[in-house]
Design a protein around this nucleic acid. Structure first.
Lengths: 213, 213
DNA sequence: TAGACTTGCGAACATAGGTTCGGTATCGGC
DNA sequence: GCCGATACCGAACCTATGTTCGCAAGTCTA
């Protein structure tokens, strides 16, 4: 990556930023101005170099025909996550299917930044209905972001379905022998102890979003 | 979404696909050919329509100066919001300065999607320290997104500094004559009544983010 | 039926923007 | 010193591309 001259680095960065801002690439003359270059031919010269080195691809005779190939990591800095349903006390938690994850069509989505997503796959989101999750400091209307999972480690924040109680809940998970402790996040609340086979893990909680009107 | 004519839908889809393929938008004449239109002016006409309806944005006099705004969900842009400090019970709330809003340099940021931002300017974020905001269902480590504001409407969720109590708090704001009612979001908690001039409004709460480890 | 939109057509126009070419300066190796 | 390679400059060239204008067919309303 250090095979770029200062000028080339400058140009490359400028192109990346420009695309970020405008959703289309800059013209040669815009590059020229922005990078303080005195001639379009110099820009052309350096673009050829960048192309030869595989940083960009150019389409000849096409205005703004520049495509970023690497480094700038252009391509969508956000990861769309579909909201596949609602989670409420007395109702089963919707289970995502492989289709659900990508179904862009119509389905409402929220967007996680790369950072938030942390490379996780198989994410989905649920809208919280009612105040039954209040012991996790989650209120009506919040959106919880989930990662698909059937098992959990101690300390994971999970969405679980308690079969006997017919109850959906979001709690911290701790295995204690053959039983399970589900610890509310709000420390003033009491934990639930129950049989391991009464707990059906639906996914791990990645995060929470709240949007005030 | 059904307010598009066949031709407009065709054009819009073509643009989306083209950008997908090339990373830069098509020219008017490319749209013309691809959509079987006999004149560039017709393309221009329909692009104007698409722009008026908010599907795209065009930059005049710029080759391929087309930006997809919705639907095609191209590189849906994100708005960076700087995290300018922490909010805790006994400490004043950091007040943002005009510089703060843009200072990308080093400052940690979170990213809001266009949708979340809702066109708001002057946003900043605060990391919540301690459990003093628990009555707003906000816990230690959460990040609140704020909009700069000195005044508030009834029902707004605000960040306020209670001068007498030396206390930062996040509550729903209601004016009641010369006094003010600050209503916790968690319905099981009691509201605070206090003098209007004891309340220093620091900003409106836009939203909340929680990231589970 | 006249008038106001809407949608479409074709041609011409103006310029934004990619390409080329003749030069210059610096540097390393033979 | 001479030569080639690299990096840059300025100007001209030319076409890709956005814009405009006059005109016509259809549709809807008064």
């Amino acid at each position: 990556m250090k095979d770029l001259s200062n000028r080339q680095r400058l140009i490359f960065d400028y192109i990346c930023n420009f695309i970020d801002d405008h959703d289309y690439p800059p013209s040669i003359r815009q590059i020229q101005d922005a990078c303080g270059i005195s001639s379009t031919s110099v820009v052309d010269y350096n673009l050829r170099a960048l192309e030869r080195m595989g940083y960009i691809r150019r389409d000849p005779d096409v205005s703004r025909g520049i495509e970023i190939l690497r480094g700038g990591a252009r391509r969508s800095r956000v990861v769309p996550v579909p909201i596949i349903g609602t989670i409420a006390a007395g109702q089963p938690i919707p289970v995502p299917s492989p289709d659900t994850w990508r179904s862009h069509d119509g389905a409402e989505t929220i967007e996680l930044s790369r950072e938030e997503a942390g490379g996780r796959q198989d994410m989905y989101a649920l809208r919280v209905k009612g105040d039954s999750m209040i012991d996790a400091n989650i209120e009506d209307g919040d959106i919880v972001v989930m990662e698909s999972a059937q098992t959990a480690q101690d300390g994971d924040m999970i969405a679980a379905w308690l079969k006997r109680e017919q109850e959906a809940t979001l709690k911290k998970f701790y295995r204690e022998g053959k039983r399970v402790r589900l610890q509310p996040k709000n420390k003033s609340m009491q934990p639930i102890y129950t049989d391991a086979d009464n707990v059906e893990i639906q996914g791990k909680v990645i995060g929470l979003r709240r949007l005030h009107p």
